[in-house]
Simulated scan of single mutants.
Amino acid sequence: MATLGIDIGGSGVKGAPVDTVRGDLLAERYRVPTPQPSDVTSVVEAVAEVAAQFDGFDQVGLTFPGVVVDGVTRTAANVDKSWIDAPAARVFAERLGKPVTVLNDADAAGVAEVAFGAGRDQSGLIMMLTFGTGIGSALFLDGVLIPNTELGHLELDGKDAEVRASDRAREADDMSWEKWAGRVQDYLRHVEMLLSPRLFIIGGGVSKKSDRFFPLIDIRTPMVPASLLNNAGIIGAAVTAEQAAGDPGAIQTDAAAARV
């Protein structure tokens, strides 16, 4: 059964068919800019454009930059507010004509990393953090996802953490790597204090430049870059969609089930 993964981000919508056993893309991914404004109708059409580039898939996994509960998008911090309480899974399924599973974007990236990447075979509490347009978080306990944590919205120096420490904030404020790393360090220490994770997996586009800022961060918790980079969301979305297809009554969030 072929599965298409599509990752809806603040700046782009990208997708590809996925080998959910190996955790690989089966074709070169296709990307379109995220529409502005990023309202429901416009984003659905952008997703449809991506899906139209591929044939032979039976189901679709979609990531969304916000809280997703039972296929309904509950928050919309980095997309148009029309997404709040939108029946996303139903809307996408009607447009694409295929079964659709929708989950939080950081959760999807974490599912992929725990199944195939930097978090594979890690026990205890581990956290995936994606630094991009915002800060996404995914929390796993012994390989099982605890969904929709949204820990990028913790307060940091009196402001939403992602306003100060996201990669978008680094670029918008033209921060040096040293200054930005200091903010990321403050954020990670705050999360350490609250949760004491065994491992931080750092994802998002900036993870490709981990050598520029990892050496500048001093925390107690081990920290590693995501190994699947920008494909993690696509892969995790597809894995979750395939799990959901195996149990139509519920989305299975145990990433360990996807391991070879």
Rank of each mutant, 00 (worst) to 15 (best):
E178T: 06
D107K: 11
T149V: 10
R164W: 14
V191R: 01
I6Y: 03
D218H: 12
E150N: 04
G204R: 00
R22W: 09
S196K: 05
V68M: 04
T240N: 06
K98I: 02
F57M: 05
G110S: 11
G143Q: 05
E192S: 05
D211F: 04
I84P: 13
P35S: 11
T34A: 07
D19Q: 14
G182C: 01
Q243C: 15
A93S: 15
V163Y: 09
Q185R: 07
P147L: 07
F57E: 07
A27L: 14
D105C: 12
D157K: 15
G15C: 12
D105S: 13
E242V: 13
K209I: 02
A250N: 04
V224R: 15
I201S: 00
G246T: 09
S38M: 03
V72L: 02
E155S: 13
A48I: 02
V68I: 02
A46V: 02
A51R: 04
A172Q: 10
D80V: 09
N78Y: 13
T240S: 13
G56S: 05
G71M: 07
A226R: 15
L199G: 00
L145D: 00
L141Y: 06
A241S: 14
E155D: 10
E192C: 06
E171S: 05
R22K: 10
L62A: 08
R120L: 01
F131S: 07
A237C: 14
A172W: 01
R74T: 12
L151I: 06
V21I: 10
R183K: 05
T63R: 03
D174V: 02
L139G: 01
E94S: 05
K14N: 11
V191E: 07
R170C: 09
P225T: 08
I202T: 03
A27C: 08
T34Q: 03
A255H: 06
D105Y: 09
R259I: 06
E49D: 08
G136Y: 08
D39R: 15
V13P: 02
G9P: 12
D105V: 08
V67Y: 02
K208I: 04
F116T: 11
G236R: 10
R164D: 09
G233Y: 08
V206P: 02
A77E: 11
G15Q: 12
A93R: 08
M127N: 01
E113A: 10
G10W: 01
R220A: 15
A244Q: 15
F57K: 06
A181G: 00
S166N: 03
E150H: 04
A76Y: 07
R90H: 05
I6E: 07
N78K: 13
F214A: 09
A250Y: 01
R198H: 04
A106T: 12
G5D: 02
F57W: 14
D142F: 07
